[in-house]
Design a protein around this nucleic acid. Structure first.
Lengths: 134, 134, 134, 134
DNA sequence: GTGGTCTAGACCACC
DNA sequence: GTGGTCTAGACCACG
């Protein structure tokens, strides 16, 4: 299947998995009412404890990204209505960064310049980038 | 003293303390070679175990923000040379956010606009911010 | 297990342990992603407090020699990239020695001669060394 | 007077002072039977606790580098006979380094090459040098 | 079971 | 008094 887990990641496994699935939903890879793989099958595929998958699915449901029908499985919810909440979340993170930036004397303009000039698309290459920066 | 610990914060105590002190150093509130409060005194003041303070101080020293002399105390190091590293750290965080933003269709321009016109910061204080910002 | 602690050694226990493990990693005795013994088990084996082992493991992780996954264990990191740093460290030590040598009139040639023809190592083992050196 | 103490040095003060004086003796800056400054005067000059100076002088005497006449002060001993001991000491340190070097695959030849090619004597050069100097 | 955090109390060398 | 190390025992989240 599509998920790969990184054991060196400090985050708990269930959160890692949940966020991967969340990304797929928001990206539209998984569409409304599509079924997620069963807990057991996904657990086997990732050779991971089913409890971990269960927890990942639970958090997804708690965040409103999926809904579960007992006895049937989990399905992706309507993603449209959730975007504003995600937006808010991102802006809050951005607030945190701006605060840190201010502490070390990084101005808003510098942050904006970085965002404008930043060239990333595929996740994973962050090194060749740091060069081209500054 | 100047530090207050927030028990609702999920981060470990020692990290909370360390980051508070780090901020003061970067802000210039604490200047080079100035003495930090003794492990024991700060522990008492925050009614926290000395070992926890010790750990906070150790991590600060490991990051090069302070130096400690056994039997004399802990002192803030020369912060000047560390700013570039901090800058890089912030930019890397920013990379993460930009990636998330792209997933939900938030454009760079929107992010930049938010940074430029930012009004809300930590939840609750929405008005008095621009003033305290200087 | 493989570690033995020397109570005559003045270095703290955690450092002794950390450096033993570091040596094994650099030597290749422990290979990438191999699991270290659990904190508790190693503590029991050495009849030492788990916190002490924890500290040893923490310092190793801080130096980038290992990574730890909460709830799963500690594992050795990719040591390859760290050799240059170690090299530098050794050369810096060598600088220190050369300075001391100069003070008492020991010439570089004498040092080089000693290195080339070195026969004695740690006090007590004077003969069997060249063999075990391979 | 001639000694300057570095508060960021991890070594205890008394050892720092003792080693500075030892170096002067070995260098010949202080000659046989010359008087060291009185404990009290040196303490005042360095604005340091007299006990600390006392301890430094004691260790020097214990190592045979000085002798003290009660009621008169401390004087430097005959340095000539001590050189072999110092030589031994340095070679033992060198042994330690060679062992570490071997662990990371640094050959004796590389060490020798470093010693030969190292250019320290006139103030300056060799980046890692400034550290080990002082 | 694992790593991680925290407390409480002790001892050490140094100043 | 200071920082640093160590022990003993506890609790937590994760798997």
């Amino acid at each position: 299947m599509w998920i790969e887990i990184d054991f060196r990641d400090k985050r708990p496994l269930y959160e890692q998995i949940a966020s991967k699935i969340e990304e797929m939903i928001l990206r539209g890879v998984l569409s409304k009412d599509e079924a997620l793989p069963s807990v057991r099958s996904l657990a086997m595929e990732l050779s991971i404890n089913p409890n971990t998958i269960q927890k990942a699915y639970s958090t997804l449901e708690a965040e409103g990204l999926t809904y579960s029908v007992s006895g049937r499985g989990s399905f992706v919810a309507d993603a449209g209505g959730l975007l504003p909440k995600k937006r808010e979340e991102i802006f809050r993170e951005l607030d945190g960064i701006m605060q840190k930036a201010k502490v070390i004397g990084l101005t808003r303009l510098e942050l904006m310049a970085y965002i404008q000039g930043d060239v990333k698309s595929s996740p994973g290459r962050t090194k060749a980038k740091e060069e081209s920066d500054r």
